[in-house]
Every structure is written in C-alpha cells, then in structure tokens.
Design a binder for these strands. Sequence first.
DNA 1: TATGAATGAGGATTCATTCAT
DNA 2: AATGAATGAATCCTCATTCAT
Lengths: 196, 196, 196, 196
Amino acid sequence: MSAETKAERTRRRILDASAREFALHGYGGASLRRIAEAADLKVGSLAFHFPTKDDLVAATLRDGVEAATAALRHAVDAVSEDADPVERLRAAARGHLDALHASDDRAAAVVRMVETLPPSLRADHVAHERGFARVWLDVLQRGRREGVVRDDVDLRVLRDLVVGALNSTSTSSPRAHPDLEAVVATVLRLLAPPRR
Amino acid sequence: MSAETKAERTRRRILDASAREFALHGYGGASLRRIAEAADLKVGSLAFHFPTKDDLVAATLRDGVEAATAALRHAVDAVSEDADPVERLRAAARGHLDALHASDDRAAAVVRMVETLPPSLRADHVAHERGFARVWLDVLQRGRREGVVRDDVDLRVLRDLVVGALNSTSTSSPRAHPDLEAVVATVLRLLAPPRR
Amino acid sequence: MSAETKAERTRRRILDASAREFALHGYGGASLRRIAEAADLKVGSLAFHFPTKDDLVAATLRDGVEAATAALRHAVDAVSEDADPVERLRAAARGHLDALHASDDRAAAVVRMVETLPPSLRADHVAHERGFARVWLDVLQRGRREGVVRDDVDLRVLRDLVVGALNSTSTSSPRAHPDLEAVVATVLRLLAPPRR
Amino acid sequence: MSAETKAERTRRRILDASAREFALHGYGGASLRRIAEAADLKVGSLAFHFPTKDDLVAATLRDGVEAATAALRHAVDAVSEDADPVERLRAAARGHLDALHASDDRAAAVVRMVETLPPSLRADHVAHERGFARVWLDVLQRGRREGVVRDDVDLRVLRDLVVGALNSTSTSSPRAHPDLEAVVATVLRLLAPPRR
DNA sequence: TATGAATGAGGATTCATTCAT
DNA sequence: AATGAATGAATCCTCATTCAT
C-alpha cells in the first residue's frame, strides 16, 4: 500500500529515461525504443502511460521546466532577507547552473529540445517557460531596487542574455566540464559590477 | 565562363538545403530526403556528393563555422585602427549576430546541431570551432589592452558566455525575433561598462 | 425487478457497439479498443464477456442473423392467411430491408463481415445463415404454390439473387440512402410479374 | 530493351498481389507485408511504387473497376448488331460474372473493399464506378428499346439490383462455387421474361 | 552526374491478449 | 465484474544506404 501508485512509479522511470534521451539526442533524434529500454519496459507499454511521442515530449518539457523553476526559486528563497543583495544574484546563477547540470538531465532536456520543437509543442512550452523567466526577472528587478544590478540596461534583454549564457554551459560532451564556479563569478561581475 | 563546375554548383545547393534542414530539425531530426528535395535532387544522388549523412553533416558544420568566422573577422577588420576601441567590440557582436540570423542558416545550423552530435563528429568540429573562438578572444584581448574591456574577469570564460548569450538569440521560431540592436547594446554594456 | 443480470446488460452493450464497428470497418478493420470505448468499458474488460476477438465476432454474427431472421419471419407472419399472396412477398422484401437498414446495424454487420471471415468462423456462420435462407425459400415456395411467383426459374438460385440484391442496398456511406420503396416495388415486379 | 519498364512490371506484380489480398481480407484486414511478400518485394520497397497504403488501395480500385468495365463493355460489344437483343443482356450478365470470378481477383477486390472504405477513398472511387454502372444502364436501355427488357420498372433501380445480385455471387469461400450458368439464366428470366 | 529501384533496419503506433488486483 | 498495467507481435511508414544503369 505504497503512497505512490505503480503507475506513478513507472511514469517517473519513463520521464527520467526520457529526459536523458532527449538531452542526448534532441527532439528529432530521440528514440522511444531506447527510452523504453532504459525504463525497463517494452515499447508498446510506453503507450499506456504516454499515448504518443509528443505526449511524452510535452510531459518531459513540463517536468524539466518545473524542476528548473523549483531549483531556481528555492536557491533564491534560501538567501536570507538581510543578506548582501549580491548573494541573491549569486544564488540564482548557481541554482540555475545546478539544475542545468544535475545528473537527472531534466532541465538539460528542455534546453536541448526547445529549438527544434514542432510548432504545436512549442506553443504550449513557451507558456510554461515564462514562469522560469519570471523568477529571473524578479531577481534582477529586486537586485536593481537594492542597488546592485547595473541600471543602464533593459532588464528583460539582460535576463534573456544571462539565461542564454548560462544555458550554453550545458553540454552533452563528457570532455567539456566548464568550471561552474568561474562561470558564476563572471556572471556576477557582469550583472553587478563591484561598486567603487 | 564560370570557373565553377557543375558539381560545385550542386554541392552548394545541397549545403544550402542542408543548413536549412539541420537548423530546423537538428542533427537527429533532419532527413536526407527532404534535403535532396530542397536541392532539387533525388536522394540517391546525394551520395555522389556526400557519401553518407555524416559526411554531409561534417561539411555543413565546416561550412557554417567558416561562414561565421569569416563574417566575424570581416566585421572586426572593417573597423579602422584608430576608431574608438568600443566600436570594435560592437562590430564583433553585430557581426556574430548577423551571421547567426542570416537567411542562409549556415551558422544557425551549427548552433542547432552541435550539442547533439555523435562523438565522432563532435571531435572534428570542436577543432574547427576553435578558430571562431580565437577571433572572439583576440577581440576581447585587444579590447582589454586598449582599456575598454573590464579587467576583473577571465577572458576565456567571458568569451564563452558572450558567445553562448549571442547564440541563444538564434531561434527557429518565426514569432520570436529578438531586437538585435538592443542585444548589441546590452552586450556592449556588459563587456565594456562606460567609464566614470 | 429486471430479470436481466448486470452481465447480460453489459453483453448487450458490447454486442451493439460491436455490430456498429464491424458494419463500419469489416472483420479485419474492426478494433476491440474502439468497441470497448463505445460500450463504455476498458479493453481488458471485454475478455470477461468474450474471451477473444473471434468469440465476439461469432456472437455478433449470431446476433445479427438472429435479428434478421426474426424480422423476416415476423414480417411474413404478420400477413394474414387470406391476403393476396403477393403481399406476403412484399412483406418479406420489406422485412429484409428493414432489418438491413435498422439503426442497430446488427444485420448490416453480418453482410459487411461475411465475405472476409476466416474459414473457422465462416463454417459456423453459414450453418446459422441457412435458417434465414430457409425462411426466404419458404416464402418463395408458398408464393409459387399460390401462383404468384414465376415458375420458370430455380427457386434456390432465385432466392440467392434476391437476397444478394437486397443485401447490396446496405451501404455504410451516409450519402447513399437508396429509395427502399422503389427497391421493394422493383423486386416485386421481378419475383411476381403482374399477370396478364 | 523491353517495351515495359521494370517499374511497370513491378507495379503490375504489386497490383496483382494487392487485388488478391484485398479480395480476401477487405480494406481493413489487408496487410502490406503480405502483399509485398506475394509480389516478391520487401515492404519498404512498396513505398517506392505506392507511397502509402491508401495510394495502393486507390490504384487497386482503379485497376479493378477498369478491368470490370472493359470486360463488361467487351462482352456487350462482341454481340453482333442483328443478334437477338436478349443475347446482349445475356452477354452483359456473363461478362460481369466472368470479371467478378476471374482468377486475378481485380474486380472481386473492388466488391470486397468498397463498403468499408474510408470516406476519402470512397469519394474518388464512386466517380470511377459510375462508368461501370453507365455501361449496364446503356445495355438495359437498349434492351428496353428493343422490346425485351420489362418496361414496368425504373431502370436505374433495376440496374442497381442486378449489379448487386451479380456481385453477391463473388464469394471468397473456396467451397461455394455458384453455378454461374444457372445464375445467368435466372437473371435473364428476371430482366427479360419470355414473351407470350 | 544523376536517376531508378530496391534493401534492411528502425521509426512510432495499434493490436489482441493476459493477468494480478 | 471490471480495471490497470504490461506484453509481443503486427501495423504502416521513413530512414540512410547501395548499386546498376
């Protein structure tokens, strides 16, 4: 009498395998057969949980955005109200990177898929992704109110560039492990140049 | 009187079609049949010019990196030696973006493919891409020597972030046309904050 | 106070859905999943009532033949003993057509399936169908005894042609609704040409 | 340097196998795999000649209607102008039956498929079939002009019933070989009752 | 140079069936 | 009496590739 039903456990196994596969091969290159194998199921059984490939993709995207948004929000919220405002920016960058480089590949799958999605899926996805972007914008706006974020740029443009820059560190190559600490440090300098 | 052979012209048509297809669907999602159709050929005829899919991919990557590198270098070189050093940075950013958003999709194809390449292709590609990265690094180093690029960050990390941020503006969505001027302006602020 | 058990009611719902599905798609094109859906059940639950697809087919055929035979017999029996013998023929034709075009598709399912049945099912079916053919033969024989059916043809051949002609009016196309009155009138002329 | 191209010969082999398969199993029950096997091809190779199943179905229908129409017309035309008009009717019935029971199954495939076609295919098909029906109507009209076809019925209704009756003799059961001569004789009696 | 024709493997999906619950 | 979950085979289709012409 587990709190989680059997279907829920299987669904999670599928979503995990799915994230890995899509992170590695992108939307068009991913194979349901491989996903099923990794989830210890036969291909035909996938259909019981996700009737079509696009249903699975949609769920994987939702799952990934959710994971990333939660991680980002959680990292930001962990910073105490009276901490140095710069620390909040640092936490955001680090939270973002942590999600992106997490071993479950949930956020990475989103980054890897998003640009080759068919329009039908894309439409739904961008709506969800807005939540993630919103958190970043909030962080930047608060940073500016608190005087640490530079005030000579459009915050939305800035946000898109920061998100793009951070996302670009997610690589599927095993050789290339960017130094995330250096990335955080550099991003911080760009967002909040030390006052003089 | 053209010095171009028929084969060379066909090759170009194929590479153009290929860039578009890979930019749209990524490495795994692209179809040789569609590429052949767009190039006004039958699938079987592709083999004459590119024996396998991966041969075509390799050529498309080389072509794309070449186009982007040439565009970047050209934009930088067009800035006169005695111009405001900031203008050289601006030219680089603009050149990069122009290549990325060019209608021929050659540079976009690279960005769209690179993270899902199989290791065999990836190895070759990163070597070529180093040339592009080198140009950016040169530009940043010169900018720093001339006192406009901030000196509190690692230039290689900075370069990777800038390239990542700029690349992230390339979207295959027809709806989303980022305001490239605003992007350039913002990047410039980050690279070379106005002196006080 | 219904004497009908729950299982019997479900069985009927399944047979109704089954008739519609087989009438629309034939033996090979019908889907148990769709039948289950139409009967408001899950596929797995079908097995409780009909262990295999062919069991369901056999039951649907039996049901259809039964319905058609009953309708035919009933129509004929409704003609009073001292009526014009031609009226008995007319009643048969009309009864046959009514069954075939009934909204429950029970008889239509038989017509649509019969020619593509696998031999195993076919064998059983033709035995049942003989009952239906028998009624028609009786009607024709009585008609002949009573002097209205032409006596220059083999009645069995005649019966098969009449049944075939009537069955051919059953179409799954929503556009084509043959004028059943005209059909009856014409068939009557052929069977029992007016005496001169 | 055969007058028939290789593709044309393959196409014919496919259409022959297709007719047999569809005659046996109907539209929904037919399998491309079996058709390919019977045509001595791999499934994938079918696509070269007929991109989709419905393309093959459409071609098979066209082929079948063409064969039947040609057979019917040919049989009718073979009757000399000054022959007994009844002979023309007899030739039509026999021609129709011959096409239907021909060993190539081309006409039988049409009869077996037509009622379970999806609307898209059906629309195109009925247009073609009109040609066949037209020939029968011509024959009947001429027969009436020449005083042998009964004049107390609507010829279109009569034609549909005759065609339906004849078509119903086409059975896929190996046991049931209707006596075609008896069928012809009976149909003739119905269409053209002997004058007194 | 390019096409025509075919292959074999793999793509996603649908199928009827099974069985524990 | 019915559902939930899974299976394995089969569905049609698309893939990159090959090779004779």
